[in-house]
Amino acid sequence: MPTDSSQTTTIRELASTHGLEIDPETINVNELGLDFQVAIAEAVDGQSWVLRIPRRPDVTDRAAVEGRFLRAIAPHLSVAVPDWQIHTEDLIAYPLLPGAPGLTIDDQGQPQWHFDLESGEYIQSLADVLAELHTVDPALVRSSGIDEFSPAEVRLRKRDDIARVVAEFDVAQSLRERWSAWLDDDAYWPTFTTLTHGEVYPAHQLMDGARNLSILDWTTAAIGDPARDFMFHHASVSAQAFDATIQRYVDKGGQVWPKFAEHCGELFSTSPVELGLYALQTGDADHIEAAKTQLNPTE
């Protein structure tokens, strides 16, 4: 989006105080992030950088965990992850990663997909990346401080999150009944946990055509339910494409269970719960209204 001169000056001066000299004419700001303002700019030596500027003080502690995690996980993945060469309370900056986002939002707020989600190349690439991630030994990243949940805790946490949102918002009865049935049925739930990214979807995937090159935004990384990394894919593709992805994932060492696909669908259905929790955390009126709409949609 266009960047005004005062904003450009502020970002340039912030970068300069951390030893990064950027060309102000190249600054391009993305305001979509909920936790960070993000800018892409070229340094005077021609290297492109990503600058993440915290929107609120409460994101700082989580960013510290994310930074430690990125250093720990990078050697174990074939895709690139951010290399935070600057990490302070007021700025995170790293060299621009390879690839282009698989999903962007246009000026009218509409999603723009930049590859075929059902292509065999994407199915293979996504399955390979997730199998690689999910088979990393959690012991290698545990010291970073990321959240870790046992199978029982995965389920209990989701139950507690839903209960909190139901207590604070008017939630449609159909959703409450759906989630209750899911929570009470053992067949849906994992009996093991893996390392997960938490928000794998094309806006966080930098692509070369339909092939994954880099993964962004590891703020939600945790040791927990592997379905977290498949739920967006499940919601976006045909059953045949999803089954092909899972077959490739299993062939590469991933592990699933009989109701894995159904569990992904139920997990995605709680996206309004996550929005509700975020709205309660920030107290932002727009987020609260959006959560109300999603939790009790007009019939």
Rank of each mutant, 00 (worst) to 15 (best):
E66A: 01
R56H: 14
G145H: 03
V237H: 00
D161W: 00
P151E: 07
A152E: 15
P272T: 03
S144E: 04
A241F: 02
L156K: 14
R164C: 06
A222I: 07
R211K: 09
D161T: 04
R228A: 14
D107T: 15
R178D: 12
A203F: 09
F230P: 02
L140C: 02
R62P: 03
G67N: 11
V81W: 00
E274Y: 05
K292F: 00
F149T: 07
D186R: 15
H114Y: 08
A100Y: 03
G265K: 01
S150F: 10
A227K: 08
T3G: 06
L34N: 10
L91K: 02
T270V: 11
D186G: 15
T60Y: 10
A39T: 02
R62H: 15
A131L: 06
E177W: 07
I215P: 00
R55W: 09
E274S: 15
L117N: 08
T17F: 05
D107F: 10
R55F: 06
P98W: 09
M207Y: 12
V237K: 07
P2K: 11
L175P: 06
T298Q: 10
E153I: 02
G254I: 03
R228V: 10
N30V: 00
A203H: 10
S16V: 06
A222F: 05
F69Q: 01
L213K: 11
L216V: 12
A43N: 07
Q112H: 13
Q294L: 15
E121W: 04
M207R: 09
D45Q: 12
D185I: 04
D35E: 00
R164D: 01
Q7T: 14
D128N: 06
G33E: 04
E177C: 13
V65Q: 04
S16D: 15
I86C: 14
E266S: 09
A181W: 09
R176T: 15
Q110E: 14
T270H: 05
A63I: 00
E153F: 03
S16K: 12
S5R: 11
M1H: 12
R176M: 11
R68W: 07
A39R: 01
H233P: 06
P2Q: 11
W218Q: 06
T282D: 06
S150H: 04
V59L: 13
T8K: 08
D161P: 08
F232K: 02
A72C: 08
R176V: 13
V237A: 08
A187R: 14
S180W: 10
E13F: 01
E199V: 07
A241H: 04
F232M: 01
T194V: 13
L14G: 10
M231T: 08
E148L: 01
L130R: 06
G265V: 03
F268Q: 12
E153K: 12
P226S: 05
H114W: 13
V129F: 01
R157M: 02
S48N: 07
R248A: 14
S214P: 02
H287I: 07
G265L: 04
T26E: 06
E31W: 09
M231K: 05
S143L: 00
I86Q: 12
A139P: 01
D170R: 08
I246N: 01
W189G: 14
H18I: 05
D208P: 01
L117G: 07
H76I: 04
E262N: 02
E299V: 15
R62D: 14
V166P: 00
V165Y: 02
K292M: 03
L20E: 08
